[in-house]
């Protein structure tokens, strides 16, 4: 690289910009209450673990983490199982009005959640899905499908047709061609869609708040939001909870950043 200083500067800025704000939360999480709102702010925490204890035991944080893992995990699995054949069909089969279907899916992705929240609530009430995990997973699947289908379609699209044609000649059905030939090749694409879906479901707040009022079922964003009592703003507990809640995702991203990028580069945005 000819521009080493520029690159180093860029790395420094990117990492600094991304991490610094969160670093302050990490520091805060190890403070005791009187330091949190100290004026001027003190940089170094006194190493108190009070907020972690409070987040974990009083607010039962792990219980929310568990709910979120269940909801986000199921959403991801179901969304992929449903999106894969749809994307394959859109990419490969001669269907009338395909452009419209893809455009329509994009439109669905554009609905403001507020527009559909009320009716979705009513459907779930009729199905008995309020205050259940599956009641939240169903709309999540629907909301993440457009993006998943979009990514997978572009991905399948890039795979060479010849492989499948060979499979067909060997007597494979369309389904067999999809599962035996295409799917293994499309692993990076599936992975990209999976992580996007997972993070969406992990982060979603609006529907979760509306559908889950039973504290036994609430997910992480709702759980953390509900740390706030009537008049007390528990910054310390929120900071500690955010640190704990972000750890699994950081580990995931760290392990899979390679997968995400391979996935996206092979499909999605090819001109």
């Amino acid at each position: 690289m000819t521009h080493r200083p520029v690159l180093l500067g860029g790395i420094f800025l990117a990492v600094l910009g991304s991490l610094c704000p969160f670093l302050w939360f990490i520091l805060t999480s190890f403070k005791s209450q009187i330091l949190v709102e100290a004026i001027p702010p003190t940089w170094w925490p006194d190493g108190s673990l009070v907020f972690y204890a409070s987040a974990l035991f009083e607010h039962r944080l792990l219980h929310y983490v568990r709910n979120s893992v269940i909801v986000a995990g199921s959403t991801t699995v179901i969304a992929l199982v449903v999106a894969t054949p749809a994307a394959y069909a859109l990419a490969r089969l001669r269907l009338p009005g395909k452009t419209w279907v893809l455009g329509g899916l994009l439109c669905v992705a554009m609905f403001p959640p507020i527009v559909i929240a009320g009716p979705v609530w009513q459907i779930l009430e009729r199905l008995g899905g309020l205050n259940t995990h599956w009641g939240l997973v169903l709309p999540y699947v629907s909301l993440t499908l457009p993006l998943a289908v979009w990514i997978l379609t572009t991905f399948f699209h890039e795979l060479p047709v010849e492989l499948e044609e060979a499979a067909r000649i060997d007597g494979c059905t369309t389904w067999q061609a999809l599962y035996k030939i295409m799917l293994p090749l499309a692993t990076p694409g599936l992975f990209t869609a999976a992580i996007l879906t997972f993070i969406y479901a992990w982060n979603e707040f609006f529907f979760a708040l509306l559908i889950l009022t039973d504290p036994e079922r609430q997910t992480l964003p709702v759980g953390i939001a509900l740390f706030q009592g009537e008049f007390i703003m528990p910054w310390g507990e929120i900071a500690a909870a955010s640190v704990i809640a972000t750890l699994p995702l950081i580990i995931l991203v760290l392990l899979f950043q390679r997968g995400i990028i391979n996935g996206l580069s092979a499909g999605a945005v090819k001109g």
């Binding site: 890039e158 990076p188 092979a266």
Partner: peptide, 13 residues
């Protein structure tokens, strides 16, 4: 050309 390139980019890792 494009198809080929895509295939190779998948095959690299």
């Amino acid at each position: 050309m494009k198809g080929l390139h895509a295939a190779s980019s998948i095959a690299t890792p």
